[in-house]
Design a protein around this nucleic acid. Structure first.
Lengths: 194, 194
DNA sequence: GCCATTAAGCTAATACTATTAGCCAAAGCC
DNA sequence: GGCTTTGGCTAATAGTATTAGCTTAATGGC
């Protein structure tokens, strides 16, 4: 009975690969698929993870960390509308290139999970990036959270509708996304003047 | 062996009730729960529906129809920014009051499903309502589809983030939604001027 | 270098899920 | 009243996650 040399990180890595390549993505993640890829029986996975739900949250942490990394990288040295556009484009590109990982970033966190703290931390940092990006618009403090939510909602909504085939007609989706960024830039600019 | 007097419509109605009351909502819809509520064994349901997936699409049709009905009702006799705000508020209210039914409206349609045509029809009509609402903004024709997509994306994204607990801090979410509508109105107004 | 402990795999079993096959009786039609 | 259709049933299959308990590989102490 030779060992496969698994670990919590190795199992999570396999899950990350699977959610981006499997047809059913994050929602269709299954321990059977992970075990098959690892060359191991299903119950063996429980030596490294507590449950499927916990594995899903581990994948979520990877996704959120990558999202934070990209968001930061895309907006260093840019400000105002340009930064907002860059952030939006990067988010859409991430969701397009890693649909499963992006979907994972939407899971609800769970307390009494080993990764709960790390997850809350990276989620906070991600919001901080958005706040920094919006700083260039000169928003009043009490308007800032509204602007952050409008930004997240708009981009996330677009990305999700696009991913789930919600846009019936195949009119140029790239152009529509640029229009969304126009709407956001103009709208938040207006929000700053009220 | 007395009969329960089920039918496709009755089964669908039970499923509709369940997705709005059950904790796991639309994603956690199960034939076992439907059968229990109907007072029938699970396999008996197959006399009325083809599969769980088909039942989910039937629920989606109910949800989309209700969404269309409410969207129309909320925007008759209103125009321009007021209509857009009314539409947005109605959508959010629907999602808040019927979370399972709202989630159901996001399923991907499937051809060779008995309800595929009806589903496409009601989806088309729903988009028509949004187009009518945006007519008051005086958009160029080629900008119209972009504006529709920006509207759907923004509102849907907000509603979904709100439903999944995506807004960490409990700052006034109602106010943030009104701010989103402000952003949308200002942004689409700007889009019309380009 | 051996021994004891820990840790990582396994099989087996349980409890769910959907789905199909085949049977049986209730309801409706002629 | 009998025949057909239809709506229920039980039983069986295959898939899912999860727990329990066993066995053996790797590792640390002396």
């Amino acid at each position: 009975m030779p060992r496969a040399g698994l670990s919590r990180a190795a199992v999570t890595d396999i899950a990350v690969e699977l959610v981006d390549s499997a047809p059913d993505g994050f929602a269709g993640l299954t321990l059977a698929a992970v075990a098959a890829r690892a060359g191991v029986a299903v119950p063996s996975l429980y030596k490294h993870i507590g449950s499927l739900a916990e594995l899903r949250r581990a994948v979520a942490l990877v996704g959120l960390s990558e999202l934070l990394r990209r968001s930061s990288a895309a907006t260093v040295g840019v400000a105002g509308p340009d930064a907002l556009r860059a952030l939006g484009r990067e988010l859409r590109a991430f969701a397009s290139g890693h649909p499963g990982l992006y979907a994972a970033t939407q899971v609800a966190p769970d307390l009494n999970d080993p990764t709960a703290l790390a997850l809350a931390q990276v989620a906070h940092d991600t919001v901080s990036v958005v706040i920094s990006v919006l700083r260039g618009f000169g928003l009043a403090d009490e308007r800032c959270v509204d602007a952050v939510r409008a930004t997240r909602a708009s981009v996330h909504g677009f990305v999700e509708l696009e991913a789930h085939g919600g846009f019936g007609m195949p009119d140029d989706v790239d152009r529509s996304f640029e229009a969304l960024l126009d709407v956001l830039v103009a709208g938040i600019g207006q929000l700053a003047r009220t």
